[in-house]
């Protein structure tokens, strides 16, 4: 490469590099800065010392996030497999059908679940008609997890599907030729080969589930506070930006750690397959 094109590449990329420094890197610096200062701007460890109070909330968020991710995986894996087995035209339609709900405001769709789950809601009045006693669903932990599964399921289906659609089917045939029955083909061949899709699906569901705040407010009725709710309140109601920043910092670190664990795990899997 000659020097002139090196200079050109710096020039055309410089607006982005300045932008990224100002609006990606600098904001993260401010999260750290606000975490360690008080409202007057002086150094303090008070925000960090308050954090243990929120440990149960953090644990609940992680627990709900894990449960929602596992349910998404269980639902999405067979569906992605079934879709990948269909004709190319049908595959395209199904992918579109999976994506379509995401284009409708998730606020409204979540709100719509309230109408379905209420004690006098649509599901219970249907159950009543076929003679089943109403089930209390809204404002439970289960409803919050349902909201997470509902909102983030497409993020699990799509990456798994896109890996499966490109699977090398000669491998599957080889597995069958070697005497694998249906179950073994799936266990020994299809599951290991779709790990990359599963891994990105897990991160794409886990991260928004752990950090959500709207779903828990609407479907949990305020009694299942998640870490996102606490952060949201610091910024929009109690205006304690410093505590909010400290909580965000912990959430960020938590996500980085869980992603590192996921990456480690997926690398290990990759070696195992080879």
């Amino acid at each position: 490469m000659n020097r002139r094109s090196a200079v050109t590449s710096r020039i055309v990329s410089s607006p982005y590099i300045v932008w990224a420094a100002l609006f990606i890197i600098a904001p993260l610096f401010f999260v750290v800065y606000y975490s360690f200062t008080d409202s007057a701007g002086g150094f303090t460890l008070l925000n960090i010392q308050t954090l243990p109070k929120y440990l149960p909330t953090f644990l609940r968020s992680i627990w709900f996030g894990i449960v929602a991710t596992i349910i998404c995986l269980i639902i999405a894996f067979p569906l992605a497999y079934f879709i990948s087995q269909k004709s190319e035209k049908a595959q395209r339609t199904f992918v579109l059908l999976v994506m379509l709900p995401m284009w409708m405001s998730f606020l409204i769709r979540t709100y719509s679940w309230m109408a379905l789950l209420q004690d006098t809601g649509i599901i219970n009045s249907f159950l009543g008609k076929i003679g089943i006693d109403p089930i209390h669903m809204i404002n439970t932990g289960g409803a919050v997890i349902l909201g997470m599964v509902y909102n983030f399921l497409p993020y699990m289906i799509l990456p798994i599907y896109s890996v499966m659609a490109k699977l090398d089917y000669s491998m599957v045939e080889a597995c069958q030729d070697l005497g694998g029955n249906g179950f073994n083909v799936i266990r020994l061949c299809i599951i290991p080969m779709s790990i990359p899709g599963v891994v990105s699906g897990i991160t794409m569901v886990f991260v928004p589930s752990v950090s959500t705040f709207y779903i828990s407010q609407k479907l949990g009725g305020g009694s299942f506070d998640l870490i996102g709710d606490v952060i949201e309140r610091q910024f929009q109601q109690s205006y304690n930006y410093n505590l909010g920043a400290a909580l965000s910092l912990v959430l960020m670190v938590l996500i980085v750690i869980s992603m590192a664990i996921m990456n480690h795990f997926s690398e290990g899997e990759g070696e195992m397959v080879i």
Partner: peptide
């Protein structure tokens, strides 16, 4: 540069939102 580009995609949206709000308010 590439790792910085990945930050907004991997960070939880609430953290991205809050961090920018802090910058703007400051």
């Amino acid at each position: 540069v590439m790792s910085t580009t990945n930050i907004p995609m991997t960070n939880p949206e609430i953290v991205t939102g809050v961090s920018m709000m802090l910058l703007f308010v400051f």
